[in-house]
Design a protein around this nucleic acid. Structure first.
Lengths: 376, 376
DNA sequence: AATGCTCTTGAATCCAAAC
DNA sequence: GGTTTGGATTCAAGAGCAT
């Protein structure tokens, strides 16, 4: 019998078969195998690291470093670790939707085995992402470089998956340049770090919420289901709830579950308005150039130019263009005059507006705004 | 018969059995197997990455990206790539001295397989190091995070090896703080990039000398022997010579060898006194507005104002702003509400702090200071 | 001489809906 | 399911040239 620790405050209103907003108690492979196939949007996993710290590490002042030596982090060999890794990755892949994706975080002790396993199991790697720690633990012995980062792998269920990636959102958050594969965050300390009754850290490797915030907001939509098979103290659940996503956590240790339940219960979801994001151009309603002509925003007979006025074309009544011998759609004629394979006519062609040239895309924006107003 | 292209200017004065300061022509596994066991201090390897590019890629301006489509990067499957990888790694391990070490560089396409192979062959991983590219190629289709880094693995021949690590030198070069595992360098362009007679790049993936400079100065002593089984245009040889180390290169392609010979011949070794390294300073961490939201310094739903409170905007969960019909980054919305072409959102927008308004740039300064403090 | 502008280019697993 | 078509998409660093 598989145990469940349900969040009182988040009963599953949709009546889905999925144990939404719930922590499942026990082995993650068994629990995942009991879930319906193709039902989860994203898996985020922070598996045990197979750290081989067989002797204690001491700081220069002889104080002990509290290394990761819990029983769950011991594996006899790489072979055992590989068997474990492939088993849970396979179970995770089964429950992912066809367009689902997975994130796995690790360090050099385990991430190479995880990455190879992902490839062997026909996941399709999308990015490896570096979490650069603003405040890593120094290398006390001075024998290596400060181990100042961890690696995340983002992979699709398979090569054909069309995964969620909120590109525009990431770009806007990053001062209007593409978000890179190296992310800078402090490690989890202070008030965010969960403590036990003795004021010791409750979990040895609690991840910062900022890291999950970026993962979840970049690669899920509001309402999506995120499953974390190594839930620990529930950072994934806390951030999912905050961002209006659902979570499923799986965890074996009762002390972690107790901490996670309390933590998540105290989270207040952000309002729908703040979570809502701009509609990317890709999914904006389609507006044909011909309708601009029909609506009178562009008059037949108007001359269009590229931004440097190397080429021009005439707008015909049916919304097609003519330029010399070339005729066709705005895209086709734009490509033909340049001798290019393809062309986005919306940004290539411009119309005179007073003394300056305005891209015809501006007219389309007007139409779209008008349509939004009318439908609202 | 294995061919050799010896550097005229660097005949092997010590009479060693090793083909010092020489390029060996042909297959690296055969050549390594012909060298004496336990004779090399360091191996630096930049193997094929096994990129799987099945279609062309064009930039938004319709120009074509010159991708890596060379025959030497083609493998039938991961299984074939693994066989190749394990074969050369095994040959490399045999020729390493007992306290020798290896560096391998790669990307997410191949580095996980390389790392797992190193572990399986009883190498002992010391660090993974991230080369953060200052000027990576963007993701032109907006489908993923900018792939802005490559990964290097530094491993000892085995667990007991006492490898060379010039800790003090690295620390001094890094403003008296430990050198971290994330390194920032520009990619190899400009005058450093070797060109052929048609002024095309001679090699598709030439590495920057600065990267090798740090690798060699951190993990070898003057006079050590560095072997590079995928020598290419000889960056490893050029830097080794400059830093007073010996090199052995192995390369199959005659055009690369010709370029490497000419290049290395023109290198003047630094004086023994100068081989104290000078490494570039750390750059001030770049902090995006979205990070402030992710890190909880600015809460989604917060209202921002310009200094005279003529306009206001709402902070959304993804780090974008909304103000009336306008939405986008702090800069874009700042420009839109003013009807201006551009705007520095950092100084334009303010948040309430008690009774007064504080520019959001103040929050960024706090984060920067915190990160500097923590990393120092 | 210094500054500013344009043009080129880089290890890339880079589209999606309609027909 | 394959094919066609619409139209979405880029950042930093050098080099070269003009002011």
């Amino acid at each position: 019998m598989l145990r469940t620790a349900r969040m009182a405050a988040s009963a599953n209103a949709e009546g889905s078969l999925l144990p939404i907003d719930t922590i499942l108690v026990g082995d993650c492979i068994k629990h995942m195998n009991a879930l319906p196939a193709g039902s989860v949007d994203l898996v985020f996993a922070d598996p045990p690291y197979n750290l081989q710290l067989d002797q204690g590490l001491t700081r220069p002042d002889q104080s002990r470093v509290d290394g990761v030596d819990d029983a769950w982090d011991k594996f006899d060999s790489f072979a055992h670790y590989d068997i474990f890794t492939r088993a849970w990755l396979k179970a995770a892949r089964r429950i992912l939707k066809p367009d689902g994706a997975i994130w796995v975080i690790g360090s050099y002790h385990n991430i190479f085995r995880v990455g190879a396993a992902l490839q062997d199991l026909d996941y399709w790697l999308l990015n490896d992402v570096i979490w650069r720690k603003a405040n890593p633990m120094p290398n006390f012995r001075g024998t290596r470089f400060t181990n100042a980062h961890e690696t995340l792998i983002w992979a699709a269920k398979d090569r054909d998956s069309r995964v969620t990636f909120n590109y525009e959102q990431m770009k806007q958050a990053n001062d209007d340049v593409q978000m890179r594969s190296d992310w800078l965050f402090p490690i989890c300390t202070g008030a965010e770090r969960l403590k036990d009754d003795d004021d010791e850290k409750l979990h040895p490797t609690q991840k910062p919420e900022a890291l999950l915030y970026r993962v979840i907001s970049a690669t899920t939509k509001p309402g999506d289901v995120v499953l974390d098979p190594f839930f620990g103290t529930g950072t994934t659940g806390a951030v999912a709830k905050k961002l209006g996503r659902h979570f499923i956590g799986i965890e074996r240790e009762d002390t972690y579950i107790a901490g996670a339940l309390k933590r998540i219960a105290s989270i207040r979801p952000l309002s729908a308005a703040t979570i809502e994001t701009a509609v990317p151009k890709r999914s904006a309603p389609r507006v044909a150039f011909g309708s601009l002509v029909e609506m009178g925003l562009i008059t037949p007979g108007t001359e269009l130019y590229d931004d440097r006025q190397r080429w021009s074309a005439l707008v015909r009544a049916d919304g097609s263009l003519v330029s010399g011998d070339h005729m066709g759609s705005i895209h086709r004629v734009g490509a033909l005059v340049q001798g290019a394979e393809a062309c986005n006519g919306w940004t290539f062609w411009h119309a005179r507006q007073g003394s300056r040239l305005a891209p015809i895309d501006d007219f389309r924006s007007q139409v779209r705004a008008q349509m939004e107003r009318l439908s609202a």
